[in-house]
Amino acid sequence: MPRTPNPSSDASRLAVETRDLGRVYKTRNETVTALSSVDLKVREGELFGVLGPNGAGKTTLIKILVTLLLPSSGTAKVDGLDVVREFRQLRSRIAIVSGGENAGYGLLRVREQLWMFSQFYGIKSKVAYARIDELLERLGLASVANRQISGLSSGMRQKMNLVRGLMTDPRVLFLDEPTVALDVGAARDLREEVSRWMAEDPTRTVILTTHYMQEADDLCDRIAIVNRGRIVIEGTPQSLKLEVQRDVVVDLQLEPGVPVLDRLREVAGVGAASVREEDGLDRFSLLLADDAVLTNVISAVERSGRRVAGLAKREPTLEDAFVKLVGRSMTEEETQ
């Protein structure tokens, strides 16, 4: 369920503002432009998504915003503070939770580690324990509070990691692919807790990166799609879907054979095409300017000698918008 933006939040206050932000990594043998000319405005109270494939620059952006990395050009402010010059004041107002890392000291107990980190924020022990216990309860971790971290599943560890992010009551919370590699249930619990936490206080802000379309669609008020270090488009999930609303979306299944993706992309009237393999079939998603284009698509397939196993029209999704805007699907790079 997309949240309705809270009317009581002061929409004119910006939680994040970047101007012409850029970052180039120079290593011994290469120069990578991870971010370029990023202009971003996130209002206080928003749950803002940064959506993009692996290597798009999402983590780089987050690291700059949380003061873990210096930008090579441009400026960025979080909660009104400059991330380079005012990083000390800023650090007490933000928190970050990264996914896919299995973070934690295996020898410590869950509640003990959380308490220790609360002490690095100067929170009174009594207050800290009350918050920790409440959050552990909410995330279903109360029963493992005194267990060693090494004994937790990765889903539980990531929930504990989220508790660490929430317990300091940050003004802006950064979540860098928080549900990556988690099972469906744990991912759902985490998302639910993030929504609940946002609903509790309309001035809280979350910046979430993800490469899961559905996560961005379900959770975020607004989304920026990033690709190769640039923001391709920005808007609500609904407005992004409008990008493809006038297109005809077709799912085409082919039996295995010679590659045809590039050939399909060349057919006049095909706005975008992507493919994934499932159950031994190649499943193509095609965006067509109108129904008539389908005839040309089918003859292109026939010329290639491949056999059609199925064909269906469907409603456009955020994924289709992504493919149209970026020119490839989110997972294409991984499967190639």
């Binding site: 003061t67 873990l68 000390r88 650090r91 970050i96 990264s98 973070a103 980190f117 690095f120 100067g122």
Partner: peptide
């Protein structure tokens, strides 16, 4: 190994 250094680094302490 523990992936916790950044969280200590970013704390106000």
């Amino acid at each position: 190994r523990f992936k916790m250094l950044k969280y200590a680094y970013l704390a106000p302490l």
